[in-house]
Nucleic acid binder design. Sequence first.
DNA 1: CGTACTAGTCTTTTT
DNA 2: GACTAGTACG
Length: 800
Amino acid sequence: MSKYDTLNPQQKEAVFQCEGPMLILAGAGSGKTRVLTHRIAYMIETQGIKPWNILAITFTNKAAEEMRIRVDDLVGYGADQIWVSTFHSACVRILRRYINLIGYETTFTIYDGDDQKSVIKDVCKRLEIDTKSLKERTILGAISSAKDELISPEEFTRNAGSDFKMSKIAEAYVEYQKTLRKNNALDFDDLICKTVELFQRRPDVLEQYQERFRYIMVDEYQDTNTAQFELIHLLAGKYRNLCVVGDDDQSIYKFRGANIHNILDFEKYFKEAIVIKLEQNYRSTQNILDAANAVIRHNEERKEKALWTSKGAGEKLHFRQFDSAYEEAQFIAYDIKKKDRMGDATYGQCAVLYRTNAQSRLIEEQFVQENIPYNLVGGVNFYSRKEIKDILAYLKTLDNGRDDLAVKRIINVPKRGIGATTIAKVDNYALFEEISFYDALTAVDRIPGLGKSGAKLTAFVSEMENLKARAQVYSLRELFQQLLDITKYFDYLEETDEENAEDRIENIEELRNKLIAYEENAEEPTLSGFLEEVALVADIDSVEDGAEKVLLMTLHGAKGLEFEQVYLAGLEDGIFPSFMSMMEEDPTAIEEERRLAYVGITRAKEDLTITCARMRMLHGETQYNPVSRFVREIPEALIEGDEVPSQRRSTQSSYGSYGTYRETGSYRESGTYASKTYGGSSQSSLFLDDSMGNVRPTGGFGKSTTTTGVVKPKVTVKPKVTAAENKPFIAKGVGGLTKGSAFSTGSLEYAEGDRVSHIKFGAGTVRAIVKEPKDYKVTVEFDGAGTKIMYAAFAKLKKI
DNA sequence: CGTACTAGTCTTTTT
DNA sequence: GACTAGTACG
């Protein structure tokens, strides 16, 4: 009896084949981690492969940790010699050693999103880029995509050609990269592409790592971007022992540069590759799998596969549609509470998944009210809180004086009477002398025009130098305490932000705990080491296992996890799939959303409850959404609960609510199906048609539909709710739903032949205007985007 | 130089 | 609606 006997035939095939390239297409819940860990064990125990020749790469620290633990369990010895690491931390480790070969210092700092933002802001100011017409986030997005694709500033500039916007972005990219280098800093994307650059420029270094990592395994391969792909291929280039595991159906990070073709075309790059499909699912019931399969089948771009299980059909999926997002949240809280009370499930077995972080709030409120313990993943990252960033900026300043951003952040926090003008003067001097901001501070007497402020700067510097000196002799936790003492940071919090001071101090204590934990666990604890660890954590990494708490998180956050009881909330067209994806002409945008739906469904082991709301508030607007198309893609026979308007009806009827919806929906520019923006008089058929499901009596609106103790809110079918009935009712609203619904037909300010502008497509000429019962249909020939037909109410065209 | 108010933006997802 | 950055004023 060996540990390998429990594997199924496909898993065995994957485990026993250690040499050469291999693609494992591992469906959700098919035991891929098991395969990877067993494969590692097999290599070491029976193939005599040295542990230090093995590299296993994952995307999150949590996944890496989990794999490490399981490998430790399986392999008696030497497991600690295996590199089990995320892309980012593996690269940091390599760069800390060799980045000096490509012009950085090995003490580089890592910039997070906020840091990037301040840099780009500064860059825009210097280059006099008008951030109204070219947003910072647009520029950063472009830079990030460029790096994902390994496009250098120079190449980007060449590609930009004479295009005004692109060449502006190119300028910004050049300047941004210069600034980072000057600050001896790398952003997240740099970590990957600088490593690639290192390998490309220094074949000797590459070879050293090729020799070291003779056996490479990559998890979640479908999420790799071009830079990561290149990195892996360079490393595996010599021995070609590359085993990638992934599921094209779970590729959900396109926006982050993930290239689904990395997995779809693996066999093209490695012709000799062995391909193994793992289709037996050990996680979910047949009903859940059938639902998942039914949904994902609608995607064109995928490798055909179908999950199956030896488990029984199990419970049917549950579907509930509510009048408001408030009631939806209420139901979820009640339902989970009921399961707990009835002994059907514990809180720790439940998870609520949603598309956007904003949706968590209502659910959280209900959980608080019902005293349900929960854990929220995501949202405002712990490390991006003000007080945490301040303390970290201090630590960075002590660790690496070259990080200008960090120094500027804390030079006047707590207040030291050092203002913007003084900082600007020092900055100018630093720029002129080509030294760091902090170095300029140490040469105060040479900076002209400082006046009295000079003394304040000197005081700050000696404070820092004092601490730096102590850092040499004291432990990290002692240094932490002295930092707090010397800066009187807690006093500062209490003076400036009385209300939240307690929470903020608590957060700092939490940071202290992390630092202490690091100091105790690390082999050779250093300040740099701690800052690095902190820089590379994801939200999901800090989720405690075994806590009896309901988990609340986005669908993205849930990938790789599983729960007995899963609630998918907000399954509405416009929320999930998102407006953004519905507006894209490119059909792959919806396919990506569908994969996300597939990920969501397959998280459930026993029970899946899908909910949605007819009406919800989003950035201050009331919005009406029909049931998500993804729900309609699930066969009726698998679902119970409220009626799901069928897919067939929605696609075949030319006048049905979905037909209308889709037609107009695809032309929407931005915002919502808000009462505010929707023109026309047919809103009742658009939004509240009872064919979409059951419309509940308006009287129950906002009030508790769930009477005490009874968890199942009854749904009464009402023949039809007219807009007139519905309108005043929305205007009143409950729970913050106070915005009125000012429906307006909106007369057109333009005519045929006029020049108009559109937020997304830019300038164009109106070719035709056709009046339709509920709106004007406008044909516009755009200068840069071709001819589009759109509804006036949605297009928000401006005459120019 | 620091504070208080206003305007603008945001909300798709994140290592 | 909430948060943040920018501006005007003391």
